[in-house]
Amino acid sequence: MHKSVVPRLSGVHRFACLALYRALLRQCAKLPNTAPELSTCKPLIQQKFHKYKKLQSPSQIVDSLKAGYEAVDLLHSASKGNQYDINCITQLISNVQLAKRRESALQRELSKKKPKPLSRKQQRTSESRRVQEQTARRHPDATPILSRPRPVVSGRRRVPVLVSARGVPFLRIKKPQPKNLSGVIRSKLGIRWKRIERRTRLDLELLFARDEDAWDALTTGSEPETWAKEIKDALDVVNQQIQDADKKNMKLAEAMWNVVLAERKLAAEEEKRQSTETLIDT
């Protein structure tokens, strides 16, 4: 049984092709400058070699090598000043360029008639943008999330997942996330961050206010109204607001977790019931 030879993995084949490639490029450098088309010989040869370097068919390889050797003879004759061969080369190049222009014009016409299909990434982007536009506002028939679990659902029950967005809990039913939910989360996080920034600023101002009170005590004596009192009251209010919001989020997270547990229980019961019905039918 004959051993099959892969041409591109054969050292002899690669050496022959590279030798032909170098010979063609050398002959291109010797061409006269009598016609502007001759300057395109080198990039055209490079393009063709790059296009056909992975050929596997023996008949196609033989035809390509034969055409390459004929091109070497033609270029060699043209480099010696043979006007007939120079005209042949310019005519071949003109035909190739004309074919390219016709192909480009045909592709442009086809692209106008038939729009180019979107890539997978473009399809995902378009679908995500469409979902975001649809979920920009809360649906008028939407039920509160804490009203779950639903006693009966059509199809397979989706068990929600409890997620914490930097301390703000929410239940994720499916992806992509609705735009109105993202807006609520950003709003809550923005309010909390503003309160934290205010608390930091008040802590710094409280230090200056106490220094001012100490100076007043040294110069004019103690006063019933101090600089630090108002700042301390405002700081207490901010701390209380942050604590109340955190407690509210904690209670909400506990309520949502109970919803998840209830949904899991119902999903397990429905799956068990469906398995029993399947066994009975079989």
Rank of each mutant, 00 (worst) to 15 (best):
K179H: 10
M250I: 05
L24A: 04
K3N: 02
R8C: 06
L235F: 11
W193T: 05
S4I: 14
N258S: 08
N82F: 01
Y52D: 12
P149Y: 07
K188L: 12
V72M: 02
D203L: 10
N95H: 14
E223P: 00
Q83P: 02
L207K: 15
K80V: 11
G221T: 08
A29G: 05
Q243K: 14
E269T: 13
P140G: 00
C88I: 07
R22C: 03
L189H: 03
S39Q: 12
T276Y: 12
Q91N: 10
L202H: 12
D213A: 09
K265R: 14
P144W: 02
Q107K: 15
G81L: 11
A35V: 08
I45D: 00
R198Q: 13
R156G: 01
S128C: 07
S222L: 12
V259C: 04
N33F: 02
P176K: 04
R130S: 12
M1F: 06
I231C: 02
K66C: 06
G221P: 03
L106D: 13
R186G: 02
R8A: 06
K229A: 13
P151H: 08
N33Y: 01
K48Y: 10
A234R: 13
D216V: 04
D203H: 09
W257T: 01
T200Y: 08
V184T: 07
E269S: 09
H76P: 00
L55T: 05
P140E: 04
K114W: 11
W257I: 01
H50N: 04
A262L: 12
L20N: 11
L31I: 05
R129S: 10
K100L: 09
H13A: 06
K251D: 10
K116P: 00
L218I: 09
L74I: 10
G221C: 03
N249V: 02
S79P: 07
V163R: 05
S119E: 08
L98F: 04
I196T: 06
V168M: 03
L266F: 06
S10F: 00
C88M: 08
H13M: 10
R195A: 10
P144E: 06
S275K: 13
D141F: 07
R157C: 01
L218K: 14
